[in-house]
């Protein structure tokens, strides 16, 4: 049985300007110990998916319209709050994009790192501090015994993200959700953090959902990758297949827009138009208005994600009908 199974998840936001379908029918699973990459542009629903799993969607305006999030046999959306709390923050933890705003500036690092242990771990403060210290060392903070008593502002961005990781991992979770943890950091620090996540994952044997917009990060880190567009998954495959033979036109376009893969001096390939407004979704494929392969059939119905090869699914009706050259 997979560690996490998300089925037909729909998280909508009801605002004065209409209903924003941030996540609109997403299903996926995560096996124990594996790394799943979630790629998409801003507004594609990748963060809201994570927030829904963690129960962090503010309701209202958010509303979980349908679906289930089953973690190790427990449906987190339907179980009692007490049961959900015993899973979230203990067996599933999350690290956020912005290490500058996700730590409490009024509390010492030590207080913040041991908080999950005091809530979930049933340990004394002294033992908790000992484990916090070991964790701080594990995430590569030098002189941890001294610096654990610092306040967040005394740390640099990379160090704060390490503190966030230490805080997330101190309960030894089985699943770590990392929502763009390196986007706000420099490339050199990003390399350090990725290395760290890889190492700790190996040591603790946890599964990771890694959300990013950077295809480069996904290539090095993830076993499987799913690409999101307008609140839906448009393609899912193992990392090698996704980079070698992307099938959905959006994945292909995304890959072609990476500057380092394009000859210098030439115009960069761009996806025409803008990402769709998720409050005014079209009856058909959300990517059709920007897609070079779209025809009338694409505007008919929302295409379902279906398997094209073992472990490789996509949601493009023209690709499935064989109307698009697979190697083009």
């Amino acid at each position: 049985m997979p560690l996490l199974t998300v089925t037909d998840l729909r998280t909508h936001f009801h605002t004065r300007n209409g209903v924003y379908r941030a996540v609109d029918g997403v299903s996926f699973h995560v096996e124990r110990g594996e790394t799943l990459g979630v790629v998409g542009e801003s507004g594609s629903g990748k963060s809201v998916t994570c927030y829904t799993i963690m129960g962090l969607v503010p309701q209202p305006p958010g509303r979980i319209e349908s679906g289930s999030v089953v973690f190790d046999g427990v449906d987190l959306l339907r179980c009692s709050p007490k049961v959900a709390r015993s899973v979230r923050g203990k067996r599933v933890s999350m690290i956020f994009q912005d290490p500058m705003t996700s730590l409490n500036p009024y509390l010492r690092i030590s207080e913040q790192v041991i908080e999950p242990l005091l809530i979930h771990g049933n340990v004394s403060r002294k033992d908790a501090l000992g484990r916090a210290l070991a964790m701080m060392e594990a995430v590569g903070i030098n002189d941890a015994a001294h610096r654990i008593h610092f306040y967040p502002h005394e740390f640099s961005g990379g160090m704060r993200q390490r503190v966030m990781i230490a805080m997330a991992l101190i309960t030894r979770p089985e699943l770590l959700i990392a929502d763009e943890p390196t986007t706000a950091l420099d490339v050199t620090v990003q390399a350090q953090i990725l290395e760290l996540i890889r190492r700790l994952q190996h040591e603790l044997g946890m599964a990771v959902i890694y959300v990013t917009h950077d295809l480069g990060v996904v290539a090095g880190l993830c076993d499987r990758v799913q690409v999101m567009y307008a609140g839906r998954i448009v393609e899912r495959a193992d990392a090698h297949a996704l980079f070698r033979s992307p099938l959905h036109p959006y994945t292909r376009a995304l890959q072609r827009s990476i500057p380092s893969l394009q000859p210098k001096g030439r115009e960069l390939f761009t996806i025409p138009g803008l990402p769709p407004d998720v409050s005014k979704l079209l009856p058909g494929c959300a990517f059709a208005p920007r897609c070079g392969f779209a025809d009338d059939a694409c505007n008919g119905a929302v295409p379902e994600l279906a398997e094209a090869a073992p472990g490789h699914s996509h949601a493009c009706i023209r690709m499935r009908a064989g109307e698009i050259d697979r190697d083009a």
């Binding site: 490339v187 050199t188 990003q190 390399a191 990725l194 950077d214 295809l215 480069g216 990060v217 996904v218 290539a219 090095g220 990392a239 090698h240 980079f243 890959q255 990476i258 380092s260 893969l261």
Partner: peptide, 15 residues
Amino acid sequence: ALVSAIPVPDPEVER
């Protein structure tokens, strides 16, 4: 070091 820190969007090269 800076160049080597850029992730390459190709799983085989990257690993």
